[in-house]
């Protein structure tokens, strides 16, 4: 069974951590994965850096820029992950913009993902319709789950459609914003979380964007199967180094 599905069956209040690969240092990727795993994080999203990250705020723009300047590339990520499955069984997802994956070749990219033990992909600028018509085959062939996003503006019809084509989980964007917002959730956000919860979708939901601390983590867990933290984690390791990963995770989960 795909590790994402297995994890979602076994656990509640999932904590998924996103970080940009190649940041802060080029070869930190494996160390960060091991430390997150040891800190009892449930899932990891490996952010493939892109020169023009349209949906990202300052923090992830900056970490992507540094990672690229460090020399990070798609090929290097696969090399870094070559024996990662000897060390951990944690679900691993690659999140990246479409162009670098398109240049690598979707077919080859998916094969490489399977080879190193990636479980799923999140490609924000590859719309579900184009995925279904052009690329689904390659994902299925390599046992990769493609994760789709919904936002507060997504219509109920479209949510139902996305639910019907989803496997693993639905990435629920918390508010109408790019990544890295740090406000507490207001009534509007909560109403949206409730509305989606009441749709009783077949696919589990994990909420991301704007979750930065224990308080916001606990809030979203009331309405979904878990949450994704990205910018707050990147800020933390930028300031405190990767040796302090355990204390960051503890601050969220206990």
């Amino acid at each position: 069974m795909n590790r994402i599905k297995k994890k979602l069956k076994q656990s509640e209040d999932i904590l998924s951590i996103y970080f940009t690969v190649g940041f802060p240092c080029l070869n930190d990727t494996v160390q960060i994965i091991k430390k997150l795993d040891a800190s009892k994080v449930d899932m990891i999203e490996l952010g493939l850096p892109f020169s023009d990250p349209l949906a990202d705020g300052q923090t992830i723009q900056n970490s992507s820029k540094i990672a690229l300047a460090n020399g990070m590339s798609t090929q290097l990520l696969f090399e870094q992950l070559i024996d990662i499955r000897n060390h951990t069984d944690i679900p691993l997802i690659i999140m990246g913009y479409f162009n670098p994956i398109f240049q690598y070749g979707i077919d080859l990219f998916c094969k490489k993902c399977k080879e190193v033990g990636i479980d799923g992909l999140i490609i924000p600028d590859l719309p579900p319709e184009i995925y279904i018509s052009d690329y689904k085959f390659f994902f299925q062939q390599n046992n990769l789950i493609n994760i789709f996003l919904i936002t507060p503006q997504t219509s109920e019809d479209r949510i139902r459609y996305i639910d019907s084509i989803s496997d693993g989980f639905i990435y629920m964007v918390s508010s109408s914003s790019i990544t890295g917002g740090e406000n507490n959730f207001n009534k509007k956000n909560i109403d949206y979380f409730k509305r989606i919860k009441n749709l009783k979708l077949k696919t589990p939901k994990i909420i991301g964007f704007g979750i930065s601390n224990r308080e916001t983590f606990l809030t979203v867990n009331k309405y979904a199967n878990g949450s994704i933290i990205g910018s707050a984690f990147i800020k933390h390791i930028q300031k405190n180094g990767i040796s302090s990963i355990r204390s960051f995770v503890k601050g969220i989960t206990s």
Partner: peptide
């Protein structure tokens, strides 16, 4: 060929798909 600003078109980029 690649994707820039939501459009599939010709664009200047590295072999790794970073826009130059």
């Amino acid at each position: 060929l690649g994707i820039i600003h939501g459009s599939k078109t010709l664009l200047m980029q590295t072999d790794d798909g970073q826009i130059t």
